[in-house]
Design a binder for these strands. Structure first.
Lengths: 333, 333
DNA sequence: TTGTATGCGTTATCAT
DNA sequence: ATGATAACGCATACAA
C-alpha cells in the first residue's frame, strides 16, 4: 500500500504553510487565485485527499451517519436503506449499516459502537428499545431520526417518520366492506411491534365503523415473514373456516397466508380476499398479484436522510412526519 | 447533547496521567490491579467510551471497513451483506455500506470517499471496474476482498471469493439431461457481467458433453431482474416454441421466465423445466418452488469479512476461494 | 494574503 | 509502575 499524501506534504511541495493549503482545498478566501490554482494542481498531481476523520476530529463533523435496522435482508428495510443511501451519496455522506436482529440488546450495543465513532447522527428504524432507553439515546446523539417509532416527548434534535398505520387499517377494512366481506381477520405481526399495535387499533376502529363486533378469534399474532403468514393462516382457517377476508401485517405475511389459503382449497380472492401492507417487490411478482397498502419506502429513506442532514446543519427542527399509504388494488382483493 | 467524556476527564478524576488510563482500558500491563480497577470503575461511572477515530488517528486502525455492492435491495447482495455485517459485529468492526447501481463511475466515487475515511479494508462485490482500475484500487487499500470478480495478478493484500459458475452451469445441464430435455435455453444476465460469461461457458461446455450443438438462438441476455426474465422468455418462446428447458442467470430471472411461460400456456415443469441460480428466499416462496443452484450467500458474506480481518491483521495471505454451489431440486425442474 | 500556535482524543516512545 | 512529550491529519483563532 502507498503512503497517504497529507496536507503537510502538499504544503512542503508548494512551499507554503499547511493553512494556506487548507484554505485552498476548502474554498475559503485568503489567498490569491493564482496560488490556489497552483496548490489545487499539486493536490491533483500528488493524489491528495483529506482524511475525513482527521478533519472530523478537528471540526467534530464526520459527514457520517449510522443506519440501524432490524434486518437489511427484509425487503422493507432494504428499500428504506436504499433511499437513505441514495440521499447520503448525493450529499456526500457515508453510512454505517448495522442490523439489530430485532434484539434490543444488540440494538443497544450497535448504538454504543456507533456513538464511539462520533458520528453526526443516526437513523433508527423500528427500534425495539423501551421508551426510557430511547430517550437516553436521543439525548446522546447530535441528531436522530426515528422511523416507525414514536416518542412521547419531543426533542430539538429529533425527527420521527411514521406510516399512518391506523388509517391504513381503516382503508383496508373499507375496501373489504366494498367487497361485501364481513368476516375479516387480522394476521398481525409481533405483539411488541408498535406499528402492529396501531394497525390493530385501526382494524378495530374499522370494524366499529361498519358495526361489526370485534372478535378476538379473528386476530392472530405471528412473525413478520412468509412462514409466519402460512402458520397463522393455517390456524385461523381451522378455527374459522368462514373467514372471507384477511388483513395481513405486511406483504410477506400476506403472501404466506395467501398460499396457505390456496393449499387449503380456498380461492383467492373469490373465497378469501387478502390485503397486505408495504408493497414490496414481491407483491407484484407473486400470483395473484397482491392488493396492498403501498408505502413509499425508498421515499421514506430519502426523507429520513434529508431530515437528518437538516437536523445536523441546525436547520431542521423537531418534527413528526406522517406518511399516508395508498391502496394499490391488484388481484388478491 | 451531552459533552463526551474523554481520556483527560478520567485522568483528572483519577488523579493519574492519560497514559495510565489508556493502559487500563486497553488491558495493557504497567499498572497495579488495584489502580486498574479504580480507573475502570470511574470509566463506568462517568460513561466514558474511547473515540474510535481519534484512536484510529493514533494507531491507523479504524476497525471499520467498506462494503460496496451494486444494490443492497437485490436479495443476492442483501444476503451477502447480512453475512458480512454479522461477522463484523462479532469482531467489533463497523461497516460502511455503499451502493454503486452497477455503475463504474459511481463505484469509483464510492471507493474514493471510502478511501478518504482511512478505513482498514474493503469488500467489493461484483465490481464493474476495468481490470486496470481495479488493480489501482487494490494497491490503494490496506486490504481488499473481491466477491464475484477475479483479477489476473495476485496481491498480498487481496483475497477473491468466487462462485464456481462454470461447474454450476454444467451441473444444471446435467440435470436437464437426466430429465431428457435437449432443447435447452440460457437466459443470461448483462453481457458485461463476469459471472454471466462464466456461466455461458459452462452452458456451452455442458452442451458439448451431451453432444448437443450450440445454438445462439437459444441464448438470451437480459437484466438480472424478474422483469428481465419475463421479457427474455417472451422473445425466446416466440423464437423457439420447442424449448423445453431454461437455465436462468439467477432466481429473479428464473421466476420471471417461469411466469411468462405459464402465461403463454406452457406448464412448468412439464412443458418447460426451469432452473435458476442463487437460491434467494423468493425461490421457496414462489409456486412451483424453484429448482436452483444453491449458493451459500450469508456464508460468503461471513467468509469475506473474516478473510478481510485476517488480511488486516497481517495473518491472511493472498487467496482465491472457490464456492461450490449445490443443486437444490424442487418443483420447477 | 499568509503564517503560527493550539487543540481535537488517543496512543507510542522514551523517561523516570 | 507511572508520566511527559510528541505525533496522527486537520481546522480554528489569532497574528503578522
Amino acid at each position: 500500500m502507498i503512503k497517504r499524501t497529507t496536507l503537510a506534504d502538499i504544503a512542503k511541495a508548494a512551499n507554503v504553510s499547511m493553512m494556506t493549503v487548507s484554505r485552498a482545498i476548502n474554498n475559503k478566501p485568503g489567498l490569491s487565485d493564482e496560488l490556489r490554482q497552483h496548490i489545487l494542481s499539486l493536490v491533483e498531481e500528488m493524489g491528495y485527499r483529506p482524511n475525513t476523520f482527521a478533519r472530523g476530529l478537528a471540526t467534530s463533523q464526520t459527514t457520517t451517519i449510522g443506519l440501524v435496522v432490524p434486518d437489511n435482508t427484509n425487503p422493507f428495510f432494504a428499500q428504506i436503506a436504499r433511499g437513505v443511501e441514495d440521499a447520503a451519496f448525493e450529499n456526500l455522506y457515508n453510512i454505517f449499516l448495522v442490523n439489530t436482529n430485532e434484539d434490543a440488546v444488540r440494538e443497544t450495543a450497535a448504538l454504543e459502537t456507533l456513538w464511539q465513532k462520533g458520528i453526526d447522527g443516526v437513523i433508527l428504524c423500528s427500534s425495539r428499545l423501551s421508551g426510557q432507553a430511547l430517550e437516553y439515546q436521543v439525548q446522546r446523539f447530535p441528531a436522530i431520526v426515528l422511523v416507525n417509532r414514536e416518542l412521547k416527548q419531543s426533542h430539538a434534535n429529533l425527527i420521527t417518520i411514521n406510516v399512518n398505520d391506523h388509517r391504513s387499517a381503516q382503508r383496508v377494512l373499507q375496501h373489504f366492506m366494498g367487497l361485501d366481506r364481513r368476516v375479516i381477520a387480522y394476521i398481525g405481526g409481533p405483539a411488541n411491534s408498535f406499528s402492529n399495535q396501531r394497525r390493530l387499533d385501526g382494524y378495530k376502529n374499522g370494524l366499529r365503523s361498519a358495526e361489526i363486533p370485534y372478535n378476538p378469534q379473528l386476530v392472530m399474532s405471528t412473525q413478520p415473514t412468509t412462514e409466519g403468514g402460512r402458520e397463522a393462516a393455517a390456524v385461523l382457517l381451522r378455527r374459522r373456516p368462514d373467514v372471507n377476508a384477511i388483513f395481513a401485517y405486511n406483504d410477506l405475511v400476506a403472501v404466506g397466508a395467501m398460499q396457505m389459503c390456496q393449499e387449503l382449497g380456498k380461492r383467492v380472492p373469490e373465497d378469501v380476499a387478502i390485503i397486505g401492507v408495504d408493497d414490496i417487490p414481491l407483491a407484484t411478482i407473486i400470483r395473484p398479484q397482491l392488493t396492498t397498502m403501498h408505502v413509499p419506502l425508498t421515499h421514506i429513506g430519502r426523507l429520513a436522510m434529508r431530515a437528518l442532514i437538516d437536523l445536523i446543519a441546525g436547520e431542521g427542527s423537531s418534527a413528526a412526519y406522517q406518511i399516508e399509504p395508498e391502496l394499490f388494488i391488484r388481484d388478491s382483493a
